[in-house]
Amino acid sequence: SSGGSSILDRAVIEHNLLSASKLYNNITFEELGALLEIPAAKAEKIASQMITEGRMNGFIDQIDGIVHFETR
C-alpha cells in the first residue's frame, strides 16, 4: 500500500507490540521500532494509541523516549 501500512500489517504490528509488552518491562522507541521493523516514531504512535484505547497497559515517557509496560 502506498499511504502507510495495510490493515494486516497494522494487525501484525499490534500483535508483536503486545508480545513485546509481555517480554519487556520497558523499551526505547528505537529498540521497539527495530523489533517491529518500523520507524521509531511510528512505534511510538501505535504504542500510544493502543495504551490510550486501553488495549495495552503502560505509559510513555516522551522525555526519555521509552515505553513502560505495566503487567495486568
Results as ranks from 00 to 15, higher is better:
59 F>M: 07
28 T>R: 06
11 A>I: 09
17 L>N: 02
48 S>Q: 14
11 A>F: 10
71 T>Y: 11
46 I>T: 03
12 V>Q: 13
37 E>S: 15
51 I>M: 07
23 L>Q: 09
32 L>K: 00
20 A>H: 06
40 A>F: 05
71 T>I: 10
33 G>I: 03
58 G>A: 12
72 R>T: 11
19 S>M: 15
28 T>Y: 04
38 I>C: 04
72 R>Q: 13
71 T>W: 11
68 H>P: 00
17 L>E: 01
16 N>V: 12
68 H>R: 07
69 F>M: 02
40 A>W: 12
12 V>N: 09
36 L>K: 00
28 T>G: 06
42 K>M: 15
34 A>Y: 11
59 F>Y: 14
36 L>F: 04
18 L>G: 03
7 I>V: 13
55 R>Y: 06
29 F>N: 00
59 F>D: 04
69 F>N: 01
48 S>V: 09
16 N>E: 08
71 T>K: 14
68 H>M: 07
31 E>L: 10
66 I>C: 06
12 V>Y: 08
24 Y>Q: 04
42 K>W: 15
47 A>C: 06
48 S>R: 10
65 G>M: 08
27 I>M: 13
62 Q>D: 09
34 A>T: 10
34 A>N: 10
33 G>A: 10
48 S>H: 12
53 E>W: 04
23 L>C: 07
56 M>R: 00
59 F>A: 06
11 A>T: 11
17 L>T: 02
54 G>K: 06
8 L>H: 11
45 K>L: 15
37 E>Y: 09
31 E>N: 08
29 F>H: 00
55 R>D: 03
41 A>H: 13
8 L>G: 11
39 P>D: 12
7 I>L: 12
70 E>F: 11
10 R>E: 13
51 I>D: 01
68 H>Y: 15
30 E>S: 08
46 I>S: 01
66 I>Y: 06
69 F>K: 00
38 I>S: 00
61 D>R: 05
59 F>P: 00
32 L>V: 00
15 H>W: 10
62 Q>W: 15
7 I>R: 08
35 L>H: 04
8 L>D: 13
39 P>L: 04
61 D>E: 05
53 E>V: 05
52 T>I: 11
59 F>K: 08
36 L>Y: 04
64 D>N: 15
30 E>L: 09
39 P>S: 14
27 I>C: 05
59 F>C: 09
26 N>T: 14
17 L>A: 02
3 G>P: 13
37 E>V: 07
1 S>P: 13
13 I>R: 03
61 D>N: 11
71 T>C: 12
32 L>E: 00
11 A>V: 12
67 V>E: 00
48 S>I: 13
13 I>N: 03
25 N>I: 11
37 E>T: 08
15 H>T: 11
12 V>K: 14
36 L>R: 00
41 A>T: 10
24 Y>N: 04
30 E>Y: 08
69 F>Q: 01
40 A>C: 04
28 T>S: 13
17 L>H: 01
24 Y>S: 04
40 A>M: 06
34 A>C: 06
15 H>R: 14
36 L>W: 05
23 L>N: 10
38 I>F: 01
42 K>A: 15
37 E>I: 05
2 S>E: 13
26 N>V: 11
56 M>A: 04
4 G>M: 10
61 D>L: 05
4 G>A: 10
28 T>E: 02
2 S>R: 03
60 I>K: 01
5 S>W: 04
29 F>W: 08
67 V>R: 01
38 I>R: 00
40 A>V: 07
38 I>L: 08
33 G>N: 01
37 E>G: 15
18 L>H: 06
40 A>P: 11
12 V>S: 10
44 E>T: 08
2 S>H: 14
48 S>L: 10
51 I>E: 00
51 I>N: 01
33 G>T: 01
11 A>N: 12
51 I>A: 02
64 D>I: 11
4 G>C: 07
50 M>R: 00
29 F>M: 06
3 G>S: 13
18 L>E: 04
64 D>A: 15
1 S>D: 14
28 T>Q: 02
14 E>I: 07
62 Q>H: 14
5 S>K: 05
45 K>V: 09
19 S>K: 15
22 K>P: 02
29 F>E: 00
35 L>A: 04
47 A>K: 00
48 S>M: 14
67 V>H: 00
41 A>M: 08
8 L>F: 14
62 Q>Y: 15
31 E>F: 07
51 I>R: 00
37 E>W: 08
27 I>K: 04
